[in-house]
Design a protein around this nucleic acid. Structure first.
Length: 803
DNA sequence: CTTCGCTAGGTTTTT
DNA sequence: CCTAGCGAAG
């Protein structure tokens, strides 16, 4: 351990701020510090509270502590903010008028409540959009504004309506015995303020508080930490202002920048030696982030050596960008590297699609982290909603979700009437269902169906009390005939059934390893993050957003989609604060790399299916020339053309943070606000082209946008397909000369690619639109001439490639 | 009450 | 381009 690290570990008394740059051994310091506290008998395990942002980070921390000290980790509270405070809230629920079986609402559930409130307040078709409302409520909560305070914080018609909805929303949640994510941080504050003696209990208990990724805390987290630590002032926070990337979620950089002012007597330790990356990588990352105004000045250094230059990979479009990356990965593997070494990072989840297709085509194993999550799939949410309703009978969102799923003839009209009746009688929905006489006015069929539903829930609940969680789920599936319901959906349903099986397996696993039952399972499920599902043991390339990648490291990293408007994102371009966050995001991305960093972009990228222009990211301009390797791209993307990027950009983008005296090469001095010009269009850049292709991409035919109607361009498509496939280890695409003259073999799923023309035994000719690889099964969307678009399982579809 | 077909809007990032 | 969500018809 270096002297700075050692000092940080041993400064056990009073407030401590550890400014830990990327790769500076932050986790090591944090865990050693805990081990030190225990070794020196300064603290006993249960007196330590360590808070992280992801379960993965928490797990890693626990494991590493366990290696340092023996055994006693079990009594220590190490977990995410959300899980730790959920735990505290369950214990203290009665003080807040909640039941300890409260449900945690995710953002989907929140939206349902908001919509319900808006309907009730007749604001459904106004200018307020439910998602906006949801985010307004969330922002209010992050700023610790309750409905009353929020109401007086601003004025105007819209704000008034927002306040009304927020107030109703809070009431609905309470009535449903439910808390949203934000509540998990806010309610503890309410509790501690209203019941100082409860606060005291936790203050006494947690004499040592440690917080990881402190730069990402919001005001509520700041406050709850302050409350807990104010007694002993043994608060140690670790963070890096350059890695604050959750501003949009309410993270407040001031928390870390002002820490020493909040806590008198703060000792600050700076960890600036990086053990992860090469000098080249660090310099590139620094070149971008150092333009920010809001940061502690600092500079990482390393003894890892200079390292290799950063290749620039330029693809004609997103598919070719992906193909170039695949080629590099294949090279890496040929040189004895493992796929596990490699990560692809992107700004938005939508970018994963083109990359995924390329990986499939090249036969490279990959795992996408994030995107649509398992627990957010419809079939999973349906079943979880049943289980949630069993645990918490007041959970309205879940009730409304399952009451007519699968269809049992209880529609909106019935529900609305029944709700009205029960409300009048002061009954909860499920209680009301048991009062048959009240239901008479609902007409002929409805009462019976409602009672039947009530009985279903009743039976399931009795089994929950006596049996195992897996048995409950089994009975649920049986009674609702849910599997049959899914199977009736056709091929789509088959995959959903698989997901249900996975849920059963997950529940079984939980049951075998925990005592906490159904309620515990639901809590765990509610609080998983995308990264938590990431499997770092398997040999595959990892694809994820930059946000998900924080805290991770990989020997080889590709940062993709470095186009102005994508990374940095368009919405951030004219807001200095957001632009700073984008730069930090780039900094995070680049500093994930240990040995090798690649920067990639595409000259053209389809968005919403429409072609869009890709100007190289302004970040690329900030990186000193001598760090980049344009040896291959350089043929066409040479120094002479560099200015033209900037010229083009300068005409429509100004960079408010470029310091005077540091004019950007070839551009207008940008501290003088550049006029926002919409025309003329950026100058054409002939021959500004594609990376490392051996074929000159300038001679490449443009990709046809709509393969289905591209008959006249078939030749072009074929050539393009050949290019895309040229690196495939399995096969060289060999287009059939005359489609009608011969019947091709049934294609191996790995041979299929978007744009390929195929022949199906019964459905006839079609064109592949795209491929997906969920659950290890390649699925293929084909637009058939006869029947339109069909989704098929590639393995079973017996498709033949035709010319 | 359900089903079908159309359209508008969505892609920032997530506990 | 894709899909969720809405309105109209059965």
């Amino acid at each position: 351990m270096n002297p700075a690290q050692q000092a940080a570990v041993q400064a056990t008394d009073g407030p401590v701020l550890i400014l830990a740059g990327a790769g500076s051994g932050k986790t090591r310091v944090l865990t050693s510090r805990i081990a030190w506290l225990l070794d020196q008998r300064l603290a006993r395990p249960w007196e330590i509270l360590a808070l992280t942002f992801t379960n993965k980070a928490a797990r890693e921390m626990s494991e590493r502590i366990a290696q340092l000290v023996d055994g006693s980790v079990r009594d220590m509270w190490v977990g995410t903010f959300h899980s730790i405070f959920a735990r505290i809230l369950r214990r203290e629920a009665e003080f807040l008028g909640y039941g300890r079986n409260f449900t945690i609402y995710d953002s989907d559930d929140q939206l349902k409540v908001v919509q319900d409130c808006m309907e009730r307040l007749s604001l459904k078709n106004g200018q307020l959009n439910p998602k906006r409302v949801r985010s307004a409520i969330s922002n209010a909560k992050n700023a610790m504004l309750d409905p009353d305070t929020f109401a007086t914080s601003d004025s105007g018609f819209i704000h008034e309506k927002l306040s009304d909805i927020y107030r109703d929303y809070a009431i609905q949640l309470k009535q449903s015995n439910a808390m949203d994510f934000d509540d998990l941080l806010l309610k503890p504050i309410d509790l501690f303020r209203a019941y100082p003696e409860r606060l005291k209990v936790y203050q006494e208990r947690f004499r040592f508080l440690l917080i990881d990724e402190y730069q990402d805390t919001n005001q509520a987290q700041f406050e709850v930490a302050r409350l807990l630590a104010q007694e002993h002032a043994n608060i140690c926070v670790v963070g890096d202002d350059d890695q604050s990337i959750y501003g949009w979620r309410g993270a407040d950089l001031r928390n870390i920048l002002d820490f020493e002012r909040t806590w008198t007597g703060t000792r600050i330790f700076k960890l600036e030696q990086n053990y992860r990356s090469t000098e080249v990588i660090l310099e590139a990352a620094h070149a971008v982030v150092s333009r920010n105004q809001s940061r502690h000045p600092k500079r990482l250094w390393t003894q890892n050596g200079r390292g290799e230059l950063i290749p620039l990979l330029v693809g004609e479009d997103e598919s070719l960008e992906a193909a170039l990356i695949c080629r590099r990965i294949l090279e890496h593997r040929e040189q004895g590297g493992s796929l596990r070494d490699v990560a692809l990072l992107y700004r938005t989840n939508a970018q994963s699609r083109a990359l995924e297709e390329a990986f499939m085509r090249h036969g490279l194993r990959y795992q996408i982290v994030g995107g649509t999550r398992f627990y957010e799939r419809r079939e999973i949410k349906d079943l979880l909603a049943y289980l949630r309703l069993l645990v918490n009978s007041q959970d309205t969102v879940s009730l409304l979700r399952v009451i007519n799923t699968p269809r049992r003839g209880i529609g909106d009209a019935t529900i609305a009437q029944a709700r009205a009746i029960f409300q009048r009688e002061g009954l909860s929905f499920l209680d009301g269902v048991e009062r048959f006489e009240l239901l008479a006015e609902l007409g002929r069929g409805a009462p019976g169906r409602l009672v039947e539903f009530g009985k279903l829930i009743h039976d399931l609940r009795s089994l929950m009390d006596s049996g195992k969680p897996t048995e409950v789920l089994e009975l649920l599936l049986e009674q609702t005939r849910y599997i049959e319901h899914l199977e009736a959906e056709g091929p789509e349903g088959k995959a959903r059934v698989e997901n249900v099986r996975e849920l059963q397996a997950a529940l079984q696993h939980y049951e075998e390893n925990s005592e906490l039952g159904l309620a515990g399972f639901l809590e765990e499920v509610a609080l998983v993050a995308d990264v938590d599902g990431w499997d770092d043991k398997e040999d595959h390339v990892t694809l994820m957003t930059v946000h998900s990648a924080k805290g991770l490291e990989f020997p080889v990293v590709f940062v993709t989609g470095l186009e102005e408007g994508l990374f940095p994102l368009a919405g951030a371009l004219d807001d200095p604060l957001q632009l700073e966050e984008e730069r930090r995001l780039f900094y995070v991305a680049a500093t994930r790399a240990m040995r090798r960093l690649f920067l990639c972009f595409a000259r053209m990228r389809r968005r919403y299916g429409q072609a869009g222009g890709g100007m190289p990211s302004s970040f690329l301009d900030m990186i000193p020339e001598e760090l980049l390797d344009r040896s291959q791209a350089g043929r066409l993307l040479g120094s002479g053309l560099r200015g033209s990027w900037r010229d083009a950009q300068a005409s429509w983008q100004s960079d408010p943070h470029t310091k005077p005296g540091e004019p950007v090469r070839g551009g207008t001095p940008s501290w003088k606000p550049a006029p926002r010009v919409t025309s003329p269009p950026p100058p054409a850049r002939p021959g500004f082209a594609g990376g490392e292709l051996e074929l000159d991409p300038a001679e490449l035919p443009p990709p046809s946008r709509k393969p289905a109607r591209a008959d006249s361009k078939l030749g072009a498509d074929r050539e393009r397909a050949a290019l895309l496939n040229q690196y495939s280890p399995f096969r060289k695409a060999e287009p059939v000369r005359d489609p009608s003259s011969q019947l091709a073999e049934i294609a191996d799923p790995a041979d299929l690619f978007p744009g390929a023309k195929v022949l199906h035994e019964t459905l006839g000719k079609g064109v592949i639109i795209h491929l997906t690889g969920f659950g290890g099964e390649t699925r293929v969307s084909v637009r058939f001439e006869s029947v339109g678009v069909k989704k098929l399982v590639a393995r079973l579809a017996k498709l033949r490639l035709i010319g």
